[in-house]
Design a protein around this nucleic acid. Structure first.
Lengths: 225, 225
DNA sequence: AGATGTTTAAGTCAATATGACCTTTAGGGG
DNA sequence: CCCCTAAAGGTCATATTGACTTAAACATCT
């Protein structure tokens, strides 16, 4: 039993995923999702949080962490039967390649670039990553999970940028604002403002208490790019 | 490693879930979800399909089967660490309590009744069942999964009954029809008709090729009961 | 045969949500 | 003081939804 982590963050205009360079056989030297064996006395979630710290140097306390699913093809690991439980972790712009306590290198990679260049990840990690990406894209529609990518407090433009980066399409700023503000509990105003490099000050918000968006925020045809 | 199955079907006006009476310790005699150990050379899905046949006598070939998630609390099984992967299986009115090849009794139980009477299921199966139920309710909204409960061909009233039973609320027949027929690929007409016990003949449909409903069919306020 | 009951099918209409687009506001810099 | 930029707020045609009404197609009863 192992857990594997798909850790996403938004940096600039890119969705990044955290990869490690494997320091052990099999797949030595190949990029892979961080992960490791589950210990006897911990829950799967605890194991995921522990690996988050050990392999990525990230404190999972402030991250959104949810289970993606179990992957158990008997041929997925050349060593024999290893079932892995994949977790999805989402956070605001996270610290740089914090090499884990394990000596291997850890770094952020562009998710879209990985998808294009054919990702040569170890094990069945390409499939896990693909499912994770699809899950995030879908969840943006009908949950308020996008706020997990924004350091608080945040502006509506920052929140919109999360959608635009992950969906790969521009959204109308005005319609986006209307939709978010009309959805009770999506965000809550702090009353504060922040000055952008240029332009009018932007109001600041925190995450609201709502999780499900009803009706959802659909990535319909409302794009510009 | 085990797999556990939450098998739902609609019978009349009730959502039923398949339970077995445990024939082994621990929890001997207690109701539980069907399931069992995963074998070394099979995928998780294959294991689920095999247990479907062995414990419930059901041919999984025509069922909708999807993974729910892994449950791995180290205290969930008194025997020690057993991680289980829960699967969700959905099908049209399935054969009666087909006692499995294992000698234990297998039977259909009302899902809503279980939820009320406080279900004394073995292990963490109450939690698994609760999550499965919530998953089905949510998936009805934004996927065409409801058709998995209808034997083909089916009428729109039969499809609507699935929603009504699982959501526990009446839907407006006319608005439901409009929504389903306007959603490309949800259902496809066969051209055939069927006579109800009384009343106008109903057109028959098969499942369409669409899986995601866009926009979703929300369980808003549109109820009558 | 014709009236009646029942269920499916189809239509109406106001309220709401969406997509596309425009205008105003509030800053900083020249 | 003017200009540029991004945020904020508004307009309007269109699409969708919810509530409700009407028509059609069968079986049965009288």
């Amino acid at each position: 039993m192992t857990v594997d982590l798909t850790i996403f963050t938004v940096r600039g205009d890119q969705l990044m995923v955290l990869l490690v360079e494997r320091g052990l056989e099999p797949f030595l030297g190949r990029p892979a999702l961080p992960g490791g064996y589950v210990q006897k006395d911990e829950t799967l979630r605890e194991g995921a949080l522990r690996e988050l710290g050990e392999e990525a140097g990230i404190d999972g306390g402030r991250l959104h962490l949810e289970q993606l699913g179990a992957y158990g093809d008997p041929r997925r690991d050349p060593r024999g039967r290893v079932v892995t439980v994949a977790y999805l972790a989402l956070g605001p712009d996270l610290p740089d390649p914090v090499g884990g306590t394990d000596a291997r290198r850890a770094y952020w990679a562009s998710a879209s670039q990985l998808a294009n260049d054919g990702m040569d990840l170890a094990f069945d990690h390409p499939a896990i990553l693909a499912e994770a990406l699809e899950e995030v894209r879908r969840k943006l529609e009908y949950t308020a999970v996008a706020t997990a990518f924004c350091p608080e407090p945040f502006t509506l433009s920052e929140l919109r940028a999360v959608y635009e980066v992950i969906w790969g399409q521009q959204l109308d700023p005005s319609n986006f604002r209307r939709k978010v503000l009309n959805t009770a509990g999506f965000v809550q105003p702090t009353g504060e403002q922040r000055l952008p490099p240029t332009g009018r000050p932007a109001a600041l918000y925190r995450r609201g208490n709502a999780w499900l968006l009803n009706p959802p925020l659909l990535r319909g045809t409302g794009y510009v790019t």
